[in-house]
């Protein structure tokens, strides 16, 4: 049985690798092959054709696409991400510190969102049909129905404008004390927590409700078990896989949310960097940022699948 689990996980990892390859080619070709001569754009409208041709040669833009893709891919694996078109600085330097910033934001959000979502999701499944359940369900529907920027603006309206607890816009560039750190983090984390936990609550509740509808849950009821006992002893152990799966999947929504939140709160993370790079059409930077996000997304979804495999009691 153990061997079977290992081979399933191995298969899943192999699929992830293939996916990464497909994704990287999609990112590369979407940016590199679409119309628009990069060299001409870089040099501006006043450039002579000779200058453009010279730059094209220097940047290997005339090489076959497949060769350029291969070179780029090897660069990614060896840590050589190339240089920014906009200012010529190595991309690794540009991203470095900002990547840590984004990780911090994501980490703190996870710390808040997961326990909150678990608690609300499980309790609302346990109290299915009650007023509490309906309120939770309605709130989560509302939250997943609105764009992230709206959650952010609402949070600003409530916490800054009405209550005046926090500054509307915070800049993390000059954080000196722990108090300031809190104030900088507060609004982005609140926004992201709302966005991510709504998904998590919904999926957690669905997973628990599904196991509550099984014959073995009915059997437990017919043994005289109380409702909390049915949920904790019979439903939860079997819902663990789907719940962990839901957690990992929902965390991948963080990535989408992070793009908006970093922009709106001017938070110096990778996403903000990427949005700025889009404005200047800095393709190498965009490609690298995109790959970072895709990799993060892929790691989370693969993790979700592996958890589901490990949680299957029949494979134990």
């Amino acid at each position: 049985m153990k061997k079977q689990v290992l081979s399933l996980i191995g298969g899943r990892l192999a699929i992830a690798l293939i996916t990464l390859l497909i994704v990287s080619s999609a990112v590369f070709f979407a940016t590199a092959l679409l119309p628009g001569d990069t060299a001409a754009i870089l040099l501006g409208q006043a450039a002579t054709p000779e200058a453009v041709a010279g730059l094209r040669k220097a940047m290997h833009l005339d090489d076959p696409a497949l060769l350029r893709y291969g070179r780029w891919l090897i660069g990614l694996f060896t840590g050589d991400f190339g240089a920014s078109y906009a200012n010529g600085r190595p991309i690794l330097d540009l991203i470095g510190g900002r990547f840590i910033n984004t990780l911090k934001l994501a980490g703190v959000t996870t710390l808040f969102a997961v326990p909150l979502a678990l608690f609300l999701g499980i309790t609302s499944a346990m109290l299915r049909g009650t007023l509490y359940d309906r309120v939770v369900t309605l709130c989560t529907i509302g939250l997943i129905s609105i764009p992230e920027f709206m959650v952010a603006t609402t949070a600003v309206l409530v916490f800054s404008v009405t209550l005046g607890w926090l500054p509307a816009l915070a800049y993390a560039n000059d954080v000196k004390s722990f108090g300031e750190l809190l104030r900088v983090f507060a609004m982005p984390v609140i926004t992201l927590t709302f966005v991510v936990s709504a998904q998590m609550i919904r999926m957690t509740r669905a997973a628990v409700v599904e196991t509550l509808n099984t014959p073995y849950a009915e059997m437990a009821l017919l043994k005289g078990a109380s409702r909390p006992r049915i949920v904790l002893r019979h439903a939860l152990p079997n819902a663990l896989g789907p719940i962990a799966n839901a957690m990992a999947l929902s965390l991948s929504y963080l990535l989408g949310g992070v793009i908006i939140v970093e922009t709106i709160f001017n938070y110096p993370g990778v996403a903000k960097l990427m949005v700025d790079a889009v404005a200047t059409r800095d393709l190498p930077l965009i490609q690298t940022c995109a790959m970072i996000f895709c990799l993060g997304f892929l790691i989370l979804t693969t993790l979700a699948d592996i958890v589901a495999i490990l949680a299957n009691p029949r494979l134990r």
Binding site: T214, P215, Y216, M219, A220, G224
Partner: peptide, 18 residues
């Protein structure tokens, strides 16, 4: 339930918690 009246289900395979 379980003390005075007990139940044997049609499909035991589904009624046991896996």
């Amino acid at each position: 339930r379980g003390t005075k009246v007990a139940y044997v289900p049609q499909s035991a395979a589904a009624a046991f918690n896996p």
